[in-house]
Design a protein around this nucleic acid. Structure first.
Length: 255
DNA sequence: ATGGTCGTCTAACGA
């Protein structure tokens, strides 16, 4: 089973890239973030034509998440973290082939100390509490998406320049570590432990060409799943296309 | 150098 996550930064703009990538990569499951499309306008038919069924929760202009599945059914879909009503569409979970798949688009946080930063930490707190319960119900679980957190200095092209900045600050890293401590493995880190790999590069200053990136998109796996994890990598190819997303897809293969 | 580029809409805002 091949599982992937990709922040596409507008599904409308990126649909040709996505369809092309689905054809070449053939993931069984794909988690999308920043679809930026309301549910009535979600491009369900082109994805069906590409061989994928989907569930999605979107809004105008901002955010929006979706889960795509090849052949297998998406069951027990939830789009809210229990007990936390968030008007922003950043969360969708479903059970696919007996595995609980949790797709998250964690708030960016804007700037350390800002109101948006507090919202981010609060959001992560609610996610943690929900996962704590959920992992007991579903031993086979993946939590994947755009976490907007670079867990360690090694995940940043210039750690000193980013020290204590948003995406890299201690409160964010602590929140990430706390989630890992539920018994989740950071698949990309485990399989690329000696390679510095990034998943996001700012559009500005030729950051991609100069590989000035951060590793902020993650696939976290419960122990039961991780035992069967065969590989995890970043696919840089879509980031090199014309009008790319600022994020590259992360792909994990499970036995 | 405190900017820069996208996507949303067509003025700023968010990332």
């Amino acid at each position: 089973m091949k599982v992937a996550t990709w922040n596409v930064n507008s599904l409308r703009v990126r649909l040709p890239h996505l369809i092309e990538w689905l054809h070449s990569e053939q993931p069984d499951i794909l988690a999308l973030q920043e679809t930026k499309v309301e549910d009535y306008a979600f491009p369900e038919q082109p994805l069906i034509d590409a061989g994928y069924s989907s569930v999605y929760r979107g809004q105008k202009t901002y955010n929006g998440v979706a889960l795509l599945s090849k052949s297998s059914l998406l069951n027990d879909v939830v789009s809210e973290i229990d007990g936390y009503s968030d008007p922003q569409k950043r969360f969708i979970a479903a059970t696919i082939s007996g595995c609980r798949i949790v797709n998250v688009y964690v708030p960016n946080g804007s700037e350390v100390g800002s109101e948006k930063f507090e919202y981010k930490l609060n959001w992560l707190d609610h996610l943690y509490s929900w996962l704590e319960h959920q992992i007991e119900l579903y031993p086979k679980m993946l939590v994947l998406g755009d976490f907007n957190i670079a867990p360690q200095d090694f995940d940043v092209y210039d750690p000193d320049a980013w020290r204590d900045k948003v995406l890299c600050s201690l409160p964010e890293r602590n929140a990430f570590e706390k989630i890992l401590a539920l018994g989740l493995s950071d698949c990309l880190r485990e399989f690329q432990s000696s390679n510095q790999v990034f998943t996001w590069w700012d559009y500005r200053m030729n950051a991609f060409k100069r590989n000035r990136g951060l590793r902020i998109d993650h696939i976290l796996s419960s122990r039961d799943m991780f035992n069967g994890c065969k590989d995890c990598r970043v696919d840089l190819s879509p980031r090199s296309l014309e009008r790319p997303s600022d994020h590259a897809p992360v792909v994990a293969v499970f036995g």
